[in-house]
Computed example of a mutant assay.
Amino acid sequence: MRSVLICHASDAFDRQGLAAWLASFTDVAGIVVLDETRAQRVARVRRELKRVGPLRMVDVLAMRVWQKLTQSSRDRHWTRHALARMHRRYGGVPHVPEIVASDVNDPAVVAFVRALRPDFVLARCKQLIRKKLLSVPGTGIFVLHPGICPEYRNAHGCFWALAQRDLAHVGMTLLKIDAGVDTGPVYGHYRYAFDERHESHVVIQYRVVLENLDAVARRLGEVVRGEAQPIDVHGRMSGAWGQPWLSRYLRWQRTVHGATP
């Protein structure tokens, strides 16, 4: 199988660890590295502001500050150990062609992926992928979505399942992208025995990927060979969730620990 990885320049777990994992069972033809501009990051904040309003946006920004002050150091420590574990098992980052762009839908990115003729693309990015790129890979573009779909769509499904105390839906979804937002065919739901008392939601959403890499590799092979059918999610509740809120985080932690952390 020929594969292409799309990832953010700042995410070592994906750019180094998942690249090595992909190379262990596919021919990695190339990597698309997204290095977003400040304008793109500001635009994302503005979209969230429009979606939730100014008061709730304060809650969102407060959560980011809280994470930076109380969790980011431990999360980076976990990531370093996770990468070491992945490199021991899967080897180093493959030496393959790369393209660096700010926009995943840049015509240069589309041309780069088309020239590589991948069977599938694994997209680990926050940007929505448009139809011109969606149509390029033979089997499709897949995501390892942090959350169980369709109940927890968007990028913070693990956080919201934890905050909602919906622990059965803390996990990851192997999903083939379509034109919607996390609405494509679902090919797998994955979980692990997380420890919400000692693991941050960021670690949980990465670790559920780490603990299920072998199963995901087998499933992707089945999909590419035409041996897999999507999971029937007809009739299930569907929800699109936004950025984490500090107020909901503190409520979740009071439930888990019995007091504000």
Rank of each mutant, 00 (worst) to 15 (best):
W66C: 07
I31V: 15
R218T: 13
V104K: 02
Q71T: 02
E222T: 00
Y190Q: 06
E151M: 01
F120R: 08
R251I: 01
Q67S: 11
V208Q: 08
L246M: 12
H77G: 05
W245Y: 15
D214W: 08
A43M: 06
Q40I: 02
A12P: 02
D214P: 01
M172Q: 14
D178G: 09
T79R: 11
Y206C: 02
R44K: 10
G239D: 06
Q67V: 13
L167P: 00
K68Q: 12
T70C: 04
H87A: 11
V233T: 13
R51T: 01
A12T: 08
N154I: 00
S135H: 04
R236Y: 12
A9R: 12
R74Y: 11
A62S: 15
Q71I: 04
S3N: 00
A19G: 10
R38F: 14
W252G: 02
R153T: 04
V186C: 02
V256G: 05
G92Q: 04
D103F: 03
Y190M: 07
I141L: 11
D232T: 06
T139V: 13
E227M: 09
R64Y: 14
T37P: 01
Q243W: 13
A39P: 06
G180Y: 05
L220A: 03
F112S: 02
T260R: 01
T183D: 10
G53F: 07
L210E: 15
R153E: 08
D182Y: 11
D195Y: 05
C125P: 00
R219W: 10
S3M: 03
C149L: 03
A9H: 02
A20H: 08
H257G: 08
D14G: 00
G91D: 09
Y90R: 07
H156P: 02
L144N: 05
A179N: 06
I231N: 08
V136H: 01
A168S: 13
S3F: 10
R76N: 13
T255E: 11
D119S: 07
R248H: 11
H198M: 01
A240R: 02
D59S: 06
G53M: 02
H257Y: 12
R207L: 11
P54T: 10
G92Y: 04
R41E: 14
R117I: 00
C158Q: 12
R46H: 14
V224Q: 07
L49D: 04
G138K: 14
G226F: 13
V256A: 04
G138T: 08
G138M: 00
H95A: 15
H201E: 12
L213M: 04
H189Y: 15
E211W: 09
R51K: 14
P261R: 03
A240W: 15
N212L: 07
D59E: 09
R89L: 12
A215R: 14
S238D: 10
Y192S: 02
Q67R: 14
L134I: 01
